[in-house]
């Protein structure tokens, strides 16, 4: 075969493969939306789930997912910020920094089920916290930390070193230079990273099955007392999230309309995550424009 024919075949194959991938994605998203969206109704979003009857909704699961996401970000952002600053600004070039980086890589490559089991062992069992939003948020924090840390580190590093010199040459401390000059300049990247990580956290289930638990007890949305066990804000209650719910109804299979509930829940999950992605791009671009142009 002469090179020209080979070239044509090879390039053709590449196009075919790419087309197949695009087709797969389109059909996956299409399938979820086509089967799921018709099931999404006000009733579905606002009524509680059913174990043995059909017609259950996802109100509590949806709220749990959002609440858990909120707590996770509250826990993980400060730690990731501190660590990101350390890696981008303070870390000397030596073997200790190498070890630290490797440690973070190890954490990020641990299967989420292992992170979940560790939290189950330490917090749920040994510390007697039990299946709870708190345990779940801790597990998700561990799961989220390495990526968020790396994102913050990269956002900080992408700010020109000239800005650091400018700050230092004015007699500012390194800390004020970082927090007052570098960090604000890195905000677009950091916000984008947070929203993207929020999408990941929102869809995570393996780390939650044995930490936040698989049950959604009846909660009272009018009870604002965080310490009351029936309050929707109580972090010590077990809380099944939307992602865990999808897994549960499919693997235990006693809900008669499991398929419909899962399609509906999957559609809600996908739509929310797509919104997260869009929001991330949009806010990132907006902030970037705002900072570099006239305002």
């Amino acid at each position: 075969m002469n090179p020209k024919t080979t070239n044509k075949i090879a390039i053709g194959l590449i196009y075919t493969f790419v087309a197949i991938v695009v087709a797969i994605l389109v059909s996956l998203i299409g399938y979820i939306l086509v089967t799921g969206v018709p099931h999404i109704s006000w009733h579905f979003l606002t009524s509680k789930s059913q174990s043995f009857l059909s017609g259950g909704g996802i109100r509590d699961q949806l709220f749990n997912s959002v609440y858990l996401l909120f707590l996770t970000l509250c826990l993980s952002f400060p730690i990731a910020l501190g660590s990101g600053i350390y890696l981008a600004e303070y870390a000397p070039k030596n073997w200790i920094t190498e070890v630290i980086r490797t440690t973070i890589e190890v954490l990020s490559s641990l299967p989420s089920v292992v992170v979940g089991l560790f939290c189950y062992l330490l917090f749920v069992v040994q510390m007697h916290i039990g299946f709870s939003i708190l345990s779940g948020a801790i597990a998700l924090t561990f799961f989220n930390l390495p990526l968020l840390t790396r994102n913050i580190e990269n956002s900080l590093k992408s700010v020109s070193h000239l800005q650091r010199e400018a700050g230092l040459s004015l007699g500012l401390s390194q800390w004020k230079t970082i927090t007052g000059i570098i960090l604000p300049a890195a905000v677009p990247g950091i916000i984008t990273g947070i929203i993207l990580s929020a999408g990941r956290v929102f869809g995570e289930a393996a780390a939650l099955i044995y930490t936040a638990g698989q049950s959604a007890p009846i909660i009272d949305y009018t009870n604002w007392n965080v310490f009351s066990s029936s309050s929707f804000l109580n972090p010590m209650r077990p809380a099944e999230t939307l992602a865990v719910h999808i897994w549960k109804v499919n693997s235990e299979g006693i809900t008669p309309d499991a398929n419909l509930v899962s399609s509906g829940s999957s559609a809600v999950l996908i739509i929310l995550i797509l919104l997260f992605n869009l929001l991330a791009h949009w806010i990132g671009n907006l902030l970037y424009k705002k900072m570099t142009s006239n305002f």
Partner: peptide, 10 residues
């Protein structure tokens, strides 16, 4: 972005 449980369900 598609969560793993959704992949499982699909």
């Amino acid at each position: 972005g598609i969560p793993s449980v959704v992949y499982g369900f699909l």
